[in-house]
């Protein structure tokens, strides 16, 4: 209980490194979510709208990729952005860009799959109305995303939730560098292992708060969609 009290006082006391870590985490997660959403939502909508051969295979692939563990995604990206890898000259490894790239790759299949399955709940008459009014595929995609914005919001939130809570990619690609790539989850992994529970716990509280907020917003989106 004492540790919990200390954890709260760390937060309330505005201890700079703790808050910096929180801000950095959110910064990485927000950017990576943006980069995951830009291709993910249109792709999800395209899968939903498209009538093409191999669609089932494509959907199954997206779902399969979604289940790949974070450390595998981390390893994969690592092999690309290492200085001895093909994208080495960009110097992304052990830098924020590397973490954001890895997290975006992590969230991308999730956002795609969630958009796809979410849009399936959308009234099929929207698509038929767009078709009958002569909307071309590109316009249909935009209109479907617009009409399905509440499920899209959920997909985006799910992506954000996944990258905020993950540790494998952040650790492997960020290197847990103080004042640079240290995030809430890598700090927890590091501090808990060192027996320093106060900061780990205070960050755990923040992560819990983030998760609760995401759930709450997601719930609002579901309610408003009706």
């Amino acid at each position: 209980m004492n540790a919990l009290g200390n954890a709260f006082s760390l937060l309330a006391g505005g201890e700079r490194e703790t808050w910096w870590t929180i801000a950095t985490s959110l910064r990485f997660s927000l950017w990576s979510t943006v980069f995951a959403v830009i291709p993910g939502v249109p792709l999800g909508a395209a899968l939903f709208l498209g009538r093409f051969k191999g669609k089932r295979v494509a959907v199954a692939m997206v779902n399969a990729i979604m289940a790949v563990p974070t450390v595998v995604v981390g390893l994969f990206v690592y092999s690309f952005i290492s200085r001895s890898g093909p994208l080495g000259s960009l110097n992304m490894l052990y830098a924020p860009a590397g973490v954001i790239a890895g997290q975006a790759l992590l969230a991308f299949p999730l956002v795609t799959a969630m958009s796809y399955t979410g849009l399936q709940k959308l009234d099929p008459r929207y698509n038929e109305t767009l078709l009958t009014l002569g909307a071309r595929p590109w316009r249909r995609m935009i209109a479907i995303i617009r009409e399905g914005r509440f499920v899209i919001v959920q997909a985006v939130l799910a992506g954000f939730g996944r990258v905020t809570g993950e540790v494998g990619v952040s650790m492997m690609l960020g290197g847990n560098i103080r004042w640079y790539t240290r995030t809430m989850t890598t700090t927890i992994a590091l501090d808990a292992g060192k027996g320093e529970f106060e900061r780990a716990l205070s960050l755990g509280i923040v992560l819990l708060g983030v998760a609760l907020s995401i759930n709450f917003l997601s719930h609002l989106a579901v309610r408003d969609a009706r």
């Binding site: 008459r125 038929e128 109305t129 009958t132 009014l133 002569g134 209109a143 617009r146 009409e147």
Partner: peptide
């Protein structure tokens, strides 16, 4: 087809 013909649902949907 798309220029001249439109189908209207039993309970049509309008856009936002």
């Amino acid at each position: 087809l798309r220029d001249r013909s439109v189908f209207v649902h039993q309970h049509p949907v309008l856009f936002s």
